[in-house]
């Protein structure tokens, strides 16, 4: 990989003011921040060390100390301030802020607006990106964030999405995230002794519990019984099945219709889900799944006796 002199120049011009504000930073950390190897940072630093102002006596060079892998800049010459952000930098940050805002229902949403105005004032670019926020933010988010930080256990009543019943559970919250417009919580579930993912809109209640009741032993997931591969033919009308379930898809073969192989997964859930796509998803195997879906469809058909 050969890097152009221009890219290197750009990085060097950014390195000096960054060093100035992060005196004594390690080369390892610099490499991480700038997304290059330590070797590259080292050779950048050697190069910068030789640059300066006309005259080029030690007084006019960029003055830098380098000891045991830690760097200090004592005289940056005229490079004491960072460069202006370019269009792509500023637009990526503005979109990030919009995303952040769309996940919040608290005061952070307002702060983000103020911040965006400040950024725009100092850097006026047309922003080609628009983030449309229409997710329903749960008011449980802040409580759960706090519980994650404090490692509090939670007692919840939860409406299961895969079994159509509500359960009481004792959980240790681990990670919150938004996906497909829903907010999810990944947690250690003491009740079922495993990691589980919960959807926030299915919480019936939540309260802080005594963490001592939890024994969080992240034992390797029980190896799922090796099922025969689940294979589906998904027509293009049912594309969003693929888009919404990327996480469980093992393999895709595009064609007139799409051949999909799934990772082993709860077949009850899968059968229920496939029903909703009618003829646009066909089960190739296992046979048991195909039969289950047909049986369910027959039972549903019984509910509508009058229609043809």
């Amino acid at each position: 990989m050969t890097e152009s002199a221009l890219d290197r120049t750009a990085r060097a011009l950014d390195l000096v003011p960054y060093l100035l504000e992060h005196q004594g930073i390690s080369v390892a950390e610099l490499a991480q921040v700038f997304g290059v190897s330590e070797k590259q940072i080292n050779s950048d630093l050697i190069l910068i060390h030789m640059c300066g102002l006309p005259g080029y006596t030690p007084l006019e060079l960029i003055e830098m100390y380098y000891e045991d892998g830690y760097v200090t800049v004592s005289d940056p010459q005229s490079l004491n301030k960072p460069r202006k952000m370019n269009r792509t930098e500023i637009t990526s940050l503005l979109v990030s802020l919009d995303l952040l805002k769309s996940t919040r229902s608290d005061r952070i949403a307002e702060e983000v607006e103020t911040l965006k105005t400040k950024l725009r004032k100092s850097l006026s670019f047309e922003n080609p990106y628009v983030v449309v926020a229409n997710s329903k933010n749960s008011d449980l988010v802040e409580q759960i964030e706090l519980a994650i930080t404090k490692a509090n256990a939670l007692e919840i009543v939860y409406l299961s999405g895969s079994k159509d019943q509500s359960t009481e559970r004792l959980i240790l919250p681990l990670e919150l995230y938004q996906q497909n417009n829903f907010t999810y919580l990944k947690a250690w579930c003491q009740t079922s002794e495993g990691e589980r993912t919960f959807r926030l809109d299915r919480f019936v209640s939540l309260k802080i519990s005594d963490a001592n009741r939890i024994s969080y032993a992240r034992n390797e997931k029980l190896i799922a019984p090796q099922l025969a591969n689940i294979e589906l033919i998904v027509s293009k009308q049912a594309r969003n099945f693929i888009e919404e379930n990327r996480g469980i898809i093992a393999n895709l073969v595009e064609g007139e219709a799409i051949q999909v192989t799934l990772h082993p997964i709860d077949l009850d859930w899968l059968a229920r889900t496939i029903l909703g796509y009618g003829s646009s998803i066909r089960v190739v195997g296992p046979k048991q799944l195909a039969e289950d879906i047909t049986a369910r469809a027959k039972a549903i058909r019984q509910l509508y006796p009058i229609s043809k």
Binding site: E21, P82, L99, Q178, Q179
Partner: peptide, 21 residues
Amino acid sequence: RKLQSLGIPASLDFEFRMKYR
């Protein structure tokens, strides 16, 4: 990185855990 070179001490006084996938 450029903003972090402005000499403003960042202070994270909120618990922020939400991720976006």
